[in-house]
């Protein structure tokens, strides 16, 4: 009658959060090791830098998505908002000929303002986030075409602009590893977002809102204000992504952007953030974004046919999230 099917008594110590993240990290390491063994061209400085460069825009977007998703919301306007911010930077710098810092600040402020509007529609008008940001996605897509005059805007008149993503401050100091500035921007955004989430009242309310919004409201907290704050912060971060992509392409492409929010959300869920809110980390999201780029890059290095690359990426997304679910269930 003593069955073997029943699990053995588990009385070991609770596994700490740090170890938890380490497990998520091991997936990334496994991919890197596997690709390195499969191709000598993978573990090359230039290729690693290419992977980081490819992660920078999606990573920044995914960090913005993480904030909103932890509140239990979603932001579908990330991709087209990024484009809008990029185009706005183009209008400021190329069409109006204003100095470079104004273009960067303008893009970030435009992102924050858009987040403010999304947040207000969600919090005050009680429109579900999915719908509110779907609407914003289309509004911004249209506005990008309107303010750009439907043409790509080039930054040829602003010489330093493409240095924001493509230049390398690190490379000037250590010429052997010319880490592009865009990657530094990604890490800076990650550090700031991580700090806000773990150390500030805004961050604490971000988790609290996703955990139990009604309890927070009944604690006398001005729920609407904090929620709008989270969307605005996420919008500002998207503004940074807009500057990065414009700088990388040395142009603002008004038609680009739609669909990028899904890659960002994929990175967020691979990183272990719950779509139902209340749980998530920036580090996890960063790892998720890296897994996506390593996978894409590695499969290309191995010359895997493109149709199969897509299949494998889809499988990995499901596997990664399933592994995360299994881990949580057994802990």
């Amino acid at each position: 009658m003593t069955d073997t099917a029943a699990p053995a008594a588990k009385s070991g110590p609770r596994i700490s959060g740090a170890f938890h993240r380490l497990l998520a990290f091991s997936g990334l390491i496994a991919l890197v090791v596997a690709f390195s063994l499969a191709s000598p061209n993978f573990m090359q400085t230039q290729n690693i830098l290419a992977i980081l460069q490819a992660t920078s825009v999606n990573g920044v977007l995914a960090i913005a998505a993480t904030l909103v998703i932890i509140t239990g919301g979603i932001d579908l306007s990330l991709g087209t908002l990024m484009t809008f911010c990029a185009v706005l930077a183009g209008v400021i710098l190329t069409y109006l000929g204003l100095p470079l810092p104004l273009g960067v600040i303008g893009a970030i402020l435009a992102g924050a303002a858009s987040g403010l509007i999304s947040g207000t529609v969600v919090a005050k008008l009680k429109v579900p986030p999915f719908i509110a940001t779907l609407g914003m996605m289309l509004i911004l897509k249209g506005l990008s075409l309107v303010i750009s005059g439907t043409r790509p805007i080039y930054f040829n008149d602003t010489p330093g602009f493409n240095q924001i993503a493509l230049g390398s401050v690190v490379g000037q100091i250590i010429p052997a590893v010319p880490v592009p500035n865009g990657v530094l921007v990604l890490f800076a955004v990650a550090l700031i977002a991580s700090f806000v989430l773990s150390k500030t009242a805004l961050g604490r309310y971000t988790f609290a809102l996703g955990s139990n919004e009604e309890a927070v409201r009944l604690s006398g907290v001005n729920v609407d204000r904090w929620k709008i704050g989270v969307y605005a912060l996420a919008g500002g971060i998207v503004g940074v992504a807009g500057v990065l992509i414009a700088s990388r392409l040395n142009s603002a492409q008004p038609a680009l952007g739609q669909g990028y929010e899904l890659d960002a959300i994929a990175a967020v869920v691979i990183g272990g953030t719950s779509l139902s809110g209340g749980r998530g980390t920036v580090l996890g999201t960063l790892i998720g974004a890296l897994i996506i780029s390593v996978l894409a890059n590695g499969l290309r290095i191995l010359s895997v046919a493109q149709e199969w690359q897509t299949v494998v990426t889809g499988c990995i997304i499901i596997l990664a999230v399933y592994a995360d679910i299994l881990r949580r269930r057994t802990l």
Binding site: A201, F207, S211, N212
Partner: peptide
Amino acid sequence: HFGLATGLDVRNNIALASLDRFT
């Protein structure tokens, strides 16, 4: 449903209504 943010820890639940004081 209305009292606790169940996903947060005890400390943060106690501080939930007075976070401004710790800011």
